[in-house]
Each structure stands twice: as C-alpha cells, then as structure tokens.
Design a protein around this nucleic acid. Structure first.
Lengths: 151, 151
DNA sequence: CATTTACGTTTACGCATGTAGACAATAAGG
DNA sequence: CCTTATTGTCTACATGCGTAAACGTAAATG
C-alpha cells in the first residue's frame, strides 16, 4: 500500500476548505459548509465544487459512510505550508533568506516559548552555518553578481 | 509628489521579470530578454507581454529614452516579498507562526551573521513576547478551539 | 411506495495567467 | 527617402480559478 502523494497546488479558495479538514480530521461537506458560512460568503455549491476539485487532485480522500461522504486529507498542513514557504524562498536570493526570516519575526507576535524554541534552533544551526551563503540565482536576477561585471 | 503604490499581485512569470528589474535598476526589454533567455524557455514576445502587464498594473514604470523604453520598478523587492510572506501567515493560525518560522530556519542555510542578527531580533522580541499567542482563526479552521466543544 | 431532502456531479462562465504570434511605429542605415 | 531592424501593442488561446446553478441519485419521511 504505497500512498503516492505528489505536490498539487492548493489555491486560496481551496485552502479555506483544507483548513477545516486539517482542523477537524474527518468532516462532511455539510460541516465544512457550516463552518465557512460566515467567513466566506459562499454558496454551498461553491464549497462542493472546491471539494470535488480537491478530491480530483488527490488532496482529499472520500469514504462513503451511509449516504454521505467523509472527507479526509492526504496532505498534512505542515507539508502544504512547507510547499508554500518553499515557493517564497525560491523567489529570492539565498543570501537574503536570513533577512526575510528576520522581517517575518519582526512582523509577528511570538510567545516566550516560541522565542526560546527559535533560539534553540539557531543554536543548532550554528554547527552548520557558513561564512557566506551561496547565491544560486541566475546572473542578472540578483545583485550578488554585480561586482562580476563592474556596474 | 505622492507616489501611490498599491499592492498588485505579481504572478510567478512576472516575478522572474521583476527580479531582473530589481537586480539591475534600469533595464530595457532587450536586457531582460537576454538575461532570462536561458533560465526561462520563453520567446521574446512572452517577456514583452509580461512587461506590458506589469506596466499596466503599475508595478513597473517606463521612460522612453530614444527609441527604447527603460523599465524601472515602483515596488521594491522587500515590499513584494513582504506581501508574499504575509499571504502565508494569513493562511495559518497565529499560534503556529513560531513553528513555521522554525521550520524555515531549519530548512535553509544561514551564515554566522544571519544567525547573530536573528538572535538579536529575538532578543528584542522578548520585550513584546506574550505568554500565549492569540488565535484569530475562524472557529473550525484551526485546532485551538477544539476544547471549546469537546470533540 | 411516493415525495421531499440532501449530497455529489456536471456544466457554466468570466477573469487571470502562461505563452506567443501578428502588427504597428519608429529609429537606423544605406 | 526607402528599407530594415527593433521594440512596444494588440490579439489569441488554452488552462486555472472563483463562483455557482442545474441535475441526478439515493436516503429519509410520511
């Protein structure tokens, strides 16, 4: 039984549905519709479409239970979030990752525990830190190469 | 002179073009086409379309210089990246921001300087840290509320 | 058993996006 | 001045996405 899980794109609208599935584990369309009723100004049909697409893409599973279907996820939230964050960091120069992380931290509220955990992670990262991060950008797509052709 | 800069969406393809503009400041379409020639398997026409759309959206400026146009950005990279990162953090529970940042750090190479800078930022954040981050999710979209209705 | 209700599937449609050819205008060169 | 090359604009088209109505089918209910 090999569950092949690829990396399908979860769109904005679909993500709203996925959050409900991730938070609740086993849900019916009815529950999802009810939970999203207020936040999203969607007709039930809209959610049904999204569910259909998510099943089609293999992001969600269905098990028929009596007359209704139970939806479960094939992709954990952590994984989906990871894919999403990877997208960002593929859009910037690697040399810049530290700065972007810095900005993220500055812009968000953290708990004491969060901070402590992050400090621990940083402590561990020191063992693998480099003098200068390697720029992997195509020449002309980041400033790192500027000194190569004297601008 | 008030430069009103909104927050238009920069698509994946457009981003490739923007990176060239951000890295080089003042560029012609010819330069962009040349820089992206190998990385993206695009016909020159494709880049022209993207440039047109970016100008239309107000992301890029054009100044006519002789026969050709010089493209310059209206939106700094940092800002665009910020918009992008905000998207992610709007997709997850605030309580989870710390963990996501932790994963990002774990997954990327950092320099000693990066780590030190991040440590400094964390140090400063301690002054504003909270005991527990406030969950702002719609009920049913994250696990924080689970204990409210005993599931 | 007939009717109503609930739920998934099919169809629909406009706008965004990736990709690019065709066309127009203008500068350069002969 | 006419031809050619260059560069921006217009048009095109398939697919993805947001949004939703219509439809079919099966379960619940009377």
């Amino acid at each position: 039984m090999s569950t092949i899980v690829v990396n399908p794109h979860i769109t904005d609208a679909e993500w709203e549905v996925m959050r409900v599935v991730w938070a609740n584990g086993r849900v019916t369309s009815k529950e999802i519709i009810s939970i999203l009723k207020e936040k999203m100004d969607w007709k039930p049909a809209t959610i049904k479409t999204l569910l259909g697409r998510l099943v089609e893409k293999g992001v969600l599973n269905t098990e028929q239970e009596g007359r209704k279907f139970i939806y479960t996820t094939n992709i954990e939230e952590k994984e989906a979030v990871g894919n999403y964050t990877d997208d960002i960091f593929n859009r910037i120069c690697r040399k810049n990752v530290g700065n972007v992380v810095g900005s993220i931290i500055e812009d968000h509220v953290l708990s004491f525990d969060d901070i402590q955990r992050l400090e621990e992670i940083l402590e561990m990262k020191k063992a693998f830190a480099v003098e200068e991060v390697d720029c992997q950008c195509t020449e002309g797509q980041c400033e790192c190469h500027l000194h190569h052709h004297g601008g």
